[in-house]
């Protein structure tokens, strides 16, 4: 079982966390339907580092996590609140996808 290190809770088992989807910027209110469809459904889905949201369930704290979907390495873990408030992203992180996310919490249970 993987460990996620957070500043607030130290090293915790990943079982305490809930995946909440990739971080995407919501289109502007006046964006066209196509842009919204893209935001809602299309995913970059790269085997590369990507910012995601993870909830630390026991504390109710959401984290923004830079994780490599190729290696499963957790590269950075910061409070989502601070992440969105700015000041967390470095230039390197600026490659945030302009398209989008909703959480995919339900997955089918059968083949």
């Amino acid at each position: 079982m993987k460990i996620i290190h957070t500043r607030e809770h130290g090293a915790r088992n990943i079982a305490e966390f809930v995946y909440g989807g990739v971080v995407l910027r919501e289109p502007a209110a006046d964006a066209g339907d196509a842009e919204w469809a893209d935001y809602l459904f299309i995913r970059e889905n790269k085997a590369a580092p990507c910012w995601e949201l993870w909830l630390h369930s026991p504390s109710g704290m959401w984290y923004a996590v830079l994780r490599d979907a190729g290696s499963d390495e957790f590269l950075r873990v910061v409070l989502a609140r601070e992440f969105f408030a700015g000041g967390v992203l470095t230039d390197d992180d600026a490659g945030l996808s302009s398209s989008s996310s909703s959480s995919q919490e339900s997955t089918p249970s059968q083949s």
């Binding site: 909440g20 949201l53 909830l55 109710g60 609140r81 959480s103």
Partner: peptide, 21 residues
């Protein structure tokens, strides 16, 4: 799920609220 979604959205919105389950 509703509670989690609220926490999540407000992490982004940064509104001045406390949310208690």
């Amino acid at each position: 799920g509703v509670f989690r979604a609220m926490l999540r959205h407000n992490a982004e919105w940064g509104l001045r609220v406390h949310i208690v389950n």
